[in-house]
Amino acid sequence: MAPGGQKRVSNGAIFAGCAVFVGCMVGAAYASVPLYRLFCQVTGYGGTTQRVEQYSETILQKPIQVTFDANVSSGLNWEFKPAKTVNPKIGETVQVEYTATNRSSTASTGTAVFNVTPMEAGAYFNKVQCFCFTEQTLEPGQSITMPVVFFVDPEIAKAPETKNIKTITLSYTFYPSEKAQPVAALPKGETVGEGKL
């Protein structure tokens, strides 16, 4: 026992405590992205739309204008065109199409992320089908048409913060996909299991 009647904490106990703390922090860092994405999907926070498997059973006679925006980040030589503006009834299921064209001389892969404005409308914008978060690979000069199937939840007309919204904009941005690089390449003509030990 240390002078003064106090117990001494061993270096091993301090190290173990620090290791547990660091492990918890690393675990929290890995979990933060999927948890944040889940939070956004559930609440519509930040204009995140909802993903549903079924269509709306209620269609109001009140129309709402839906406009579309298309963007491409630097590093991806694509032309990305938005769908045309539509004016569906609230609750009506609609299909629109975006178009992407690879303008480079090599194949390239992109992934789209999205949001809705005004942000309050995100919780009521339901996508049945979309190309978001799915890698799209285009050969040189190739064009593809990508459908989006959606409806605006009739509850948007009841909520105090959204009942006066007249226009919603769905915006997509394509980013270049990061392909995994091999750690090491085998010498030409050699297969796994061969070579010198």
Rank of each mutant, 00 (worst) to 15 (best):
K188E: 07
L76Y: 02
G46V: 03
M146Q: 10
S56V: 01
T48F: 07
A16S: 10
T117I: 07
E97N: 12
L76T: 01
T67K: 10
T191Y: 15
E155A: 11
V152L: 04
L38H: 10
L76V: 07
P118T: 06
Y124K: 06
T48N: 02
L138R: 02
K158P: 02
L38V: 11
V33M: 05
E79M: 11
G75I: 10
C130S: 08
L138S: 06
A121S: 08
S105R: 11
N71A: 12
Y172F: 10
V9N: 11
K163S: 12
T58A: 12
E194K: 15
I59F: 00
T99D: 13
A29F: 08
Q142I: 00
Q41H: 15
F125M: 07
T58I: 14
K81H: 03
E194T: 14
P160H: 07
N102W: 09
G23R: 12
V66P: 12
I90Y: 01
T101Q: 14
S108L: 05
A185S: 10
V33E: 04
N71D: 10
A185T: 14
N164Q: 15
V148G: 00
T191S: 11
G44L: 09
P147D: 00
P160V: 09
V20T: 13
S171H: 03
P187W: 01
K166N: 13
I14G: 14
V152G: 02
Q41L: 08
A2H: 10
Y172I: 11
C130Y: 01
E139A: 13
E79R: 14
A157M: 01
V33L: 09
K127Y: 11
S10R: 11
Y98L: 02
S74H: 09
I64E: 02
K163N: 11
A70L: 08
A185F: 03
I144V: 12
V42C: 07
T145W: 02
Y98T: 01
V113Y: 14
P140A: 00
P118Q: 13
E57P: 00
